[in-house]
């Protein structure tokens, strides 16, 4: 059985069909890349899975159990954590306090402060952010705030990590560092990862499978090399070849 499976998921905002009949299985341990132009429905798909928006119809199952209609905090406690494309740090709190919230309230549910501190310290070290632990989150650079998004999501103790454009706006060096971090986290934390990314090189290198969204429809699934050769995808991205 797939860890996360979507069956015929639709999301309409009034007359706009943001997602149309999305069916998708996410296998345990894989890194699934989500591709698509702006407005293709990638972030809506994230919102629908995480409980920020309720699907108009369709089924979403986590480990066989439906999670449709759950609140975002309930979805998180079932084991799904996400980052935000536009970073949302707890600005006035320190980096460590940002992570503590996740450790105490996420699926890890560590209520004792000393144990929660230890858990968060490990996560920070793993992301190379140990030195920033006592800095207020609002004072971090964008690259560090992107990392903080990832660190905070991981600190929940989630099984599924959903990354929404964590590399947008980063320099090539920072992108490479982020790639290494994501690969390492998948192994050490045994994570299943869903990743939305515009940095194509990153998405192709990282993903074991890629799905392509276009105008809210799923138009292709496959390995990165299959996707790179897929005619539908090429047409959507580059237009039809002249006859």
């Amino acid at each position: 059985m797939s860890l996360l499976s979507l069956n015929q998921v639709n999301k309409r905002f009034g007359g706009l069909r943001a997602l149309t009949d999305i069916s998708l299985d996410v296998e345990e341990g894989e890194i699934l890349g989500l591709m698509g132009a702006n407005g293709a429905g990638k972030t809506t798909l994230f919102s629908v899975i995480c409980g920020h928006a309720r699907p108009s119809s369709g089924e979403i199952r986590l480990g066989g159990e439906s999670i449709v209609g759950l609140r975002p905090d309930q979805v998180c406690r079932r084991g799904i954590a996400r980052t935000f494309q536009i970073v949302k740090p707890f600005g006035q709190m320190t980096v460590m306090e940002n992570l503590l919230t996740a450790a105490m309230f996420g699926p890890a549910a560590i209520r004792r402060r000393d144990r929660a501190l230890g858990h968060c310290r490990e996560v920070l070290d793993e992301l190379g952010m140990g030195d920033a632990a006592s800095q207020p989150a609002h004072s971090l650079t964008l690259a560090m705030q992107k990392k903080l998004e990832v660190a905070r999501a991981v600190a929940t103790g989630c099984r599924i990590l959903m990354l929404d454009e964590v590399m947008a706006g980063l320099t090539p060096t920072e992108v490479n560092e982020m790639l290494a971090i994501i690969r390492r986290l998948r192994l050490t934390r045994r994570l299943t990862i869903l990743i939305v990314e515009h940095v194509m090189k990153a998405l192709m290198e990282l993903s074991s499978r890629v799905v392509v969204l276009h105008h809210g429809e799923l138009i292709a699934k496959g390995t990165p090399s299959e996707i790179a050769a897929d005619e539908n995808v090429l047409e959507v991205y580059f237009g039809r070849a002249a006859p």
Partner: peptide
Amino acid sequence: SLRENEEAAETVGVP
């Protein structure tokens, strides 16, 4: 946490 950002707080499990 929710004072700083409600959506983020909800996403990491705060009811």
